[in-house]
Simulated assay, not measured.
Amino acid sequence: MNYFRYKAYNEDLGHTPVENIFINHYMPDAPGDYVKVYLLGLKCSYSLQNNYLSDEIIAKTINISVEEVQKAWKYWQDQEIINVIHTEGNNDKIVEFIDIREKVLNIKGKETKPAKNSVDRIIMARQNSKVRDMFDYIRKISGRELSQNEIFVFLDWMDDYGFPPEIVVMLIEDCYSRNKKDLPYLKQVAKNWFDAGVDSQEKAIEYANRHKEKWQKYSKVLNFLRIGRQPTAVEEEMLQKWFYEYSFSDEAVLKACELTIKTLKPSFSYIDKVLSEWHDKNIKTIDEIEAYLSRNPSKDNKDGAKAPKRSFNNFKGRTYDTDLLKQRLLKKSRGELSE
């Protein structure tokens, strides 16, 4: 019987194969120390000379506690890319590294869906070329690798909302074009699209254009009032009412804004009061508004729009005899008049 072995003169000159699937899908969201533990163990698994390394030595090598090393083994076992086999009679164990590529092939052959937040779900989804292109494009416009959490959210949109990959890409592009990149915002926009019945590229384009037009209108009001922030939920409801329920033009709404600028405390509530009054009186066009204000000039002063001029006419004035005053001043200057 022949025995074969490969003799390496310098271990540092060797190499350890790390699968791209691990780098792309398992490494990004894993704690950094856990990745170090995995790579150190993987290196030993390929070595014929130094394939034993205790948890204590690993802990000292990467400067962490033994407890953290043990947590790392449990983490990777939960990810189903290693098997930890405990031997009987001592504290030794065998850490068996699983070929992730083979695992992927097994996943493709399974009929059951992988767990919702498992890497297997990502791997299976990427078997679809359109989904793979979607993730690659989003990564490109993001300028970074996507986190597992982001990928799971995008897959949720496809599963829960029925969005095809093209819709997901359009939604991301629309938000990014407005410099809105945080995940909670993206999730809210996705829900809005779903509630609006967006399920095709044509509907997505139509909805995005309406959304753009809406915020252009809202921005005019915010800029006029010098509000450098997003409107609150209550303010946004008012804006929606003015432009789309009352159907006022941009000029009409800005005219109401002019009136509130003259008040002591400009507010959305005042604008809402003005526009509600015009709506109730069926005053819509800017010409009708100007005519209404000219007939009712007091409307400009409503709710303190212009502070009233202060007058002292309500007080009874004193009357003075100027000749008598002159005589008294003359006598006082001569010392003829005592204090």
Rank of each mutant, 00 (worst) to 15 (best):
I81E: 03
K108R: 14
A59L: 10
N24R: 06
N63H: 05
M124F: 11
S311Q: 13
C44M: 05
E213I: 07
F243T: 10
I123Y: 07
K203P: 00
L186I: 11
K332M: 14
E111K: 15
I151N: 01
H279P: 02
I21V: 09
R310M: 15
L325V: 13
I85E: 10
F312T: 12
W215M: 06
K116L: 05
K7R: 09
S65H: 02
D160V: 15
A307C: 02
V18D: 03
E166Y: 07
K130G: 05
Y137Q: 11
D287P: 05
R318Q: 01
V69Y: 06
K331F: 11
Y38E: 00
R334V: 04
M158H: 05
D303A: 04
I283R: 09
A8R: 02
Q201A: 14
T322V: 13
A256T: 04
Q201F: 02
R295S: 10
A190F: 08
K241H: 12
D321Y: 02
T232V: 14
V153K: 04
I261L: 13
D303N: 11
Y218P: 07
K108T: 11
V153A: 09
K110S: 15
K108H: 06
P266I: 01
V95C: 06
K214I: 15
Q230L: 12
I151C: 04
D272I: 12
Y207T: 02
K284P: 01
A190C: 12
R132Y: 08
V131R: 07
K74L: 06
R178E: 10
I261F: 11
M170G: 04
L146C: 03
E56D: 12
N20C: 07
K130R: 13
H211F: 10
P31D: 14
K212D: 15
N223Q: 14
M134F: 08
L264C: 05
T61Y: 11
K43I: 00
K71P: 00
E245F: 07
I21G: 00
L146H: 00
N149H: 07
Q240R: 08
M170S: 13
Q148F: 03
K281S: 00
Y185T: 15
Y320L: 12
D321Q: 05
I286Q: 09
N117C: 06
K116S: 07
L222C: 04
W242P: 11
N128W: 04
G41R: 02
K43Q: 06
N63K: 11
Y244T: 13
K220A: 11
L13G: 10
A252K: 01
L171K: 00
E166Q: 14
